[in-house]
Design a binder for these strands. Structure first.
Lengths: 141, 141
DNA sequence: CGGAGATGGTTTGTATTACCAACGACCTCC
DNA sequence: GGAGGTCGTTGGTAATACAAACCATCTCCG
């Protein structure tokens, strides 16, 4: 059962760290009039162009929640909607240049806050951590 | 600059994974009528007995937000308030037995969902990941 | 002592986030 | 060329979040 314990301890650390990062991101967002959810939206849109329903699925939110979320961000010129040419029902969502810029800037701020932690790790440890983390980001989960 | 890149890539992976875990926790919470924020509250209270302001500081929330949050959870018997005997202004917050039980159960659910990912790592990799992660959880940040 | 100022938490008011149910537009497939 | 399904929005309600104003309590200095 040592394997069980090792999973438990790791899970605990991951969740704890997740909350910690969440706190940092919440503060950064607040400083820029963005909620954590909007930050998550932007994080997803960085390298994707999903339809509304896909976006909702990624975030675990209802599609009706997405409407308002997209509305407000669109009104601020940070992202945009576009009817999918292949299917008239579908609406694709994507970052505007201003949205990309803002996202980049916020990631920069996050970096400035979180990086000092990571800097405490040796370069080879960082590589190791990254390598260990990659399988956790696989699409299947 | 390879060191910079390594930090960037790692930070990106961490944030991405954080969002992934956040999604999982949001779903688990929703299945139990709890918001992500409440989950975070319970996560903190697992091993602490903070005053309202401390709790707000941990979460990056305003103290006025905490009042309602605590109200609702208290009404459900999951946590409780108690006047601090040393300072009449201060209100300490802590989990009730029912709250501890629920928190335990939810962590069990999170484990059931996230553990399969972690199981894909070899035991020694898990130890390694945990060891690498520990310094990130130090109090200072 | 005794009050002035600071701190801790709640209350009030408003915007955002989130769900569900119902709807209108569009697609699919027979 | 419908019937039924899918996609996104709208309307209604509750929870979440902030800021400002408030009362109670504590601190500390005269």
């Amino acid at each position: 059962m040592t394997s069980e314990d090792s999973v438990d301890a790791l899970l605990d650390a991951l969740v704890r760290y997740t909350f910690q990062v969440t706190g940092v991101l919440t503060r950064i967002g607040a400083a820029n009039d963005l909620s954590l959810t909007q930050l998550r939206v932007f994080g997803i849109l960085r390298d994707r162009r999903p339809r509304v329903t896909e976006l909702a699925a990624y975030l675990g939110l209802d599609k009706s929640t997405m409407s308002g979320l997209i509305d407000r961000a669109e009104r601020r010129g940070l992202l945009a909607r576009e009817k999918n040419p292949n299917d008239g029902r579908v609406v694709d969502v994507f970052l505007t240049p201003a949205g990309h810029e803002l996202t980049q800037r916020l990631y920069g701020e996050a970096r400035a806050i979180l990086a000092p932690d990571l800097d405490r790790l040796r370069p080879d440890q960082r590589e190791q951590l990254l390598a260990l983390m990659r399988p956790l980001l696989e699409p299947d989960s």
